[in-house]
């Protein structure tokens, strides 16, 4: 089970969190065309590689945050709370068990 670095609570087993999926920006609902809106709703990059995604620390601090995850290797980096410029502990939170950071 993946260790997910919550910017508040520190590394937690992924089961303690809720996965929010690929991060994407929301078009203006007043002006969005059907194509723009449905691209937001349905179309995904789904990369085999680094992916910016959202997690919800549902059994902990209940904060939504973003991080980058490599979808092949499971490596994680740069957890960040919305609104903040950098993660609370982004450097330390990455690659806890590995030799290089």
């Amino acid at each position: 089970m993946l260790l997910v670095p919550c910017p508040n609570c520190g590394p937690r087993s992924s089961q303690d969190l809720t996965y929010g999926g690929e991060s994407h920006s929301r078009p203006d609902p007043k002006t969005a065309t059907p194509e723009e809106w449905r691209t937001y709703l349905y179309l995904r990059d789904n990369p085999s590689g680094w992916l910016v995604e959202t997690w919800y620390c549902s059994s902990g601090c209940r904060r939504w945050f973003k991080l980058e995850r490599h979808t092949l290797t499971g490596e994680l980096r740069d957890p960040i709370l919305p609104g903040s410029k950098t993660g609370v502990a982004s450097d330390e939170a990455t690659n806890i068990q590995g030799g290089t950071k």
Binding site: P5, P7, N8, C9, G10, P11, V88, A89, E92, A93, I96, Q97, G99
Partner: peptide, 16 residues
């Protein structure tokens, strides 16, 4: 190596 991991775990937990 375990000692380093322990250090990092604590450092990565903002409220620890």
């Amino acid at each position: 190596r375990a000692a380093v991991v322990q250090h990092r775990l604590q450092a990565a937990t903002a409220r620890a």
